[in-house]
Structures are given as C-alpha cells and as structure tokens.
C-alpha cells in the first residue's frame, strides 16, 4: 500500500465483510499535536479477544477464499503507523462492532502520505449502497478548526429509490467530498 487512504479502504472492506450497517470514519489532522489520526468505527459482528489478537498476525486470515492463509491488511497498516512514531489500536466486542484508531506523527519523514481520500470514500460509498457512512474530517491548525461532515443516510433518504450509481448522484457525492477535503486542507497531507 502506498498511502493511508488505501489502508483506509482496506479497513472499510473489513467492516463491510463483518456485516456493518453503519461505518463512521474520522480523519483528524492536528498540527499542534503533530498528529494525523484515523478512526474507523463499525457496528459489524465484532471480534472476540483471540480473533482480535490474531488479526494483527500476518499469517492469519478470516477469508475462506484464500488458498494461502495470509492476511496482510491489518499488520501492514499497523507497521506503517509504528514506522512513523505513531500507534495502532483496535478494540472490539462480539455482537457490537469494532473501533480502530490509528495515529501517525504528522511531520515524520517516514509517514506515508494521506493519499487520495476522495476516491477511497467515493468508491466505498457508491460501492456499498447498503451501508450508511458517516464521515468527519477535521483540521486543527494555529488555533483554528475547520471541519466537514458527510452523512450518506440523509442523502439516501432524499433520493428515495434513485440509486447512488445514478450519474448525477456520483457527481454530487464526488463534488461534495472534494469541497470537504479542500476546506479541511486534506489534499496534500
């Protein structure tokens, strides 16, 4: 994976496979604390403490389709966070869901870039119409906070039976995310 947004996409797919109906994503860039924080919270089936530990092991996967039993998604994300003096935390409760908090040191030279957050979010939202996404972007810099909130449940309610893949809807979501990412200065992070 070349950037944090690709890891985020991988984590979202994990939540979907865990049958999440609601996924909350927060990206917080805090210059004062020198920290870039990603939080993904889902209401999927969750994991017991054994599975939770195993999920961080590269030789474990829950994917039955895999011939070779490796699962690199979570271990690589963890490694990349720790390489930039950050940390990776995962908490879960069977039947309730999973919360993942990943911190990166903002100005660390080994930190991977945030990457294309917009394409990650657009693909996930349109590609999983059955899941409601709540997205919060926030930037704290020089005592000023800029934030952006995007909630797909409200959009689906407004659209009624019109699918998210309807061309104008794709453009609407794309432009909304673009504005939010620009307003919170998340483009070149």
């Amino acid at each position: 994976m070349q950037d944090i947004s690709l890891h985020l996409l991988d984590i979202i797919e994990n939540s979907v496979r865990a049958q999440a109906k609601n996924i909350k994503i927060r990206v917080i860039r805090n210059v004062q604390k020198n920290r870039l924080r990603i939080i993904v919270e889902d209401d999927g089936i969750g994991m017991d403490s054994h599975t939770l530990e195993m999920a961080q092991n590269p030789f474990y996967t829950s994917k039955q389709e895999r011939e070779k039993k490796v699962g690199l998604g979570i271990p690589l994300f963890k490694q990349n966070a720790e390489l930039s003096n950050g940390c990776f935390k995962m908490a879960s409760e069977p039947g309730f869901g999973t919360v993942l908090t990943v911190d990166f040191e903002l100005d660390n030279i080994d930190r991977m870039p945030l990457g294309n957050l917009k394409d990650t979010l657009l693909g996930a939202i349109v590609g999983h119409a059955e899941v409601d996404f709540s997205i919060n972007l926030s930037a704290k810099e020089k005592g000023v906070e800029q934030s952006f909130h995007f909630d797909t449940a409200a959009i689906k309610e407004e659209l009624g039976d019109i699918p998210l893949t309807y061309p104008d809807v794709i453009e609407y979501i794309d432009q909304s995310l673009q504005e939010g990412i620009q307003n919170t200065n998340m483009e070149e992070v």
Partner: peptide, 27 residues
C-alpha cells in the same frame, strides 16, 4: 481503487443510468 474510480467516471460522463457498481472482497 483506480479501477472503481474509472468505472464511476465513465458512468457519469456517458450518463449510463442502467448500470450498477458495487465493491466486493477477495475472490
């Protein structure tokens, strides 16, 4: 991700209203 994005762009640009795109896991 870029493959998904390109499908969405093409659907929007060509105004394809009878196509559905979804994402799935490992195959």
């Amino acid at each position: 991700r870029e493959v998904m994005k390109t499908f969405l762009e093409e659907i929007a640009n060509r105004n394809l209203t009878d196509v559905l795109v979804t994402q799935t896991g490992e195959k």
